[in-house]
Design a protein around this nucleic acid. Structure first.
Lengths: 119, 119
DNA sequence: CAGTATCCCTCCAGATACTG
DNA sequence: CAGTATCTGGAGGGATACTG
């Protein structure tokens, strides 16, 4: 599945659905949030606490900066994480899960349980 | 996300990962099963009981036969559904969830709960 | 009925290079 | 450091026609 986003396109060339799709708020929405190729890997890292861009890039084997940015942006737009920039030199940026993001934990846990049982 | 499959390629041109990927048996595996564009829509139908190819095609808005076949095959390979063909004329084919497939229900339910709470 | 077989084309992932 | 800008191949999905 691919990721979708709102009409106003902040990200040239990425995450634009073929046709604007009305996402009914249910499984489809949940899958939109975690279904991306990298989403749950980023989330997994953030469950361990606040992380910086570089940290994420290093801990997620060879994700390109573009893919990481796209994924982070998509998660941010869906309100599961928060981006905070500190005006240091050079810039410092931190990513933290929101309560909505933390709450994904139960969902992910069910997935692990299912896989553990059947695979 | 896209779907992945085993090395022996039964489906020309579809569901072939760019590089063969070792799927660790966890969230990744669960996402591989339900993460496809059509997978959970097919599953949703089958939770309501056994269905035939044509029924699925009609109830899932305008899915092409090719995509439906691909999705069903992928779900079958992952052991979440079973295909049964009856030698009638014309052919009758039924798709039914396996226990492994039925058990996806808890997972899907968690997704709905999350979405209901936060969206 | 339940699929294959093709063609075709979109469009996104990943690589690379660059920058405030 | 934390990203953009740009280019590209090829998967993956639709449309259509056909068949056991």
């Amino acid at each position: 599945m691919s990721l979708t986003e709102s009409k106003q396109n902040r990200h040239p060339g990425n995450y634009v659905p073929k046709q604007p799709v009305h996402i009914e708020c249910s499984i489809e929405k949940a899958l939109d949030v975690i279904g991306g190729k990298w989403s749950f890997l980023v989330l997994r890292e953030l469950f361990g606490g606040t992380k910086r861009f570089g940290e994420l890039q290093r801990s997620i084997s060879s994700i390109s900066p573009k893919s990481l940015t796209d994924t982070l942006r998509h998660l941010e737009e869906n309100g599961v994480l928060e981006r905070t920039a500190y005006p240091t030199v050079p810039v410092t940026v931190e990513y933290t899960l929101t309560p909505k993001g933390e709450d994904l934990h139960r969902m992910l846990k069910e997935m692990k349980l299912w896989a553990a049982k059947w695979c």
